[in-house]
């Protein structure tokens, strides 16, 4: 299983900050599609992803226990 973390607008869209999902052997791009479908989460297309707290590309393949975070465009400072 994998923990999926959602922030800002994505979190509000899903109504939760965390989702448990079996994403093992799936790519980041595939997980994005799954979430987009499940939650009508269009904003995920413009979001970056991080695996275990480091940015990862769309073709990154997830392993058991990885934590995946979807990161909308940031606005700190």
């Amino acid at each position: 299983m994998n923990k999926i973390l959602l922030f800002a607008g994505l979190q509000e869209k899903a109504g939760q900050a965390e989702v448990e999902l079996n994403a093992v052997n799936k790519s980041i791009a595939e997980i994005k599609s799954m979430l987009k479908e499940s939650y009508q989460m269009e904003e995920i297309d413009t979001s970056m992803a991080a695996v275990n707290e480091e940015y990862a590309n769309g073709d990154f393949v997830v392993k058991e226990g990885d934590t995946i975070a979807f990161i909308p465009p940031v606005s700190g400072g």
Binding site: A8, G9, A50, I71, P72, V74, S75, G76, G77
Partner: peptide, 24 residues
């Protein structure tokens, strides 16, 4: 660089609405 790579988001609250600000 903070505005490019650090995962922090701000939401502006106004008298007539609120919005997550999308980019740096």
């Amino acid at each position: 660089r903070i505005k490019e790579i650090v995962p922090i988001w701000k939401k502006e609250h106004w008298e007539n609405g609120e919005e997550w600000i999308g980019d740096q």
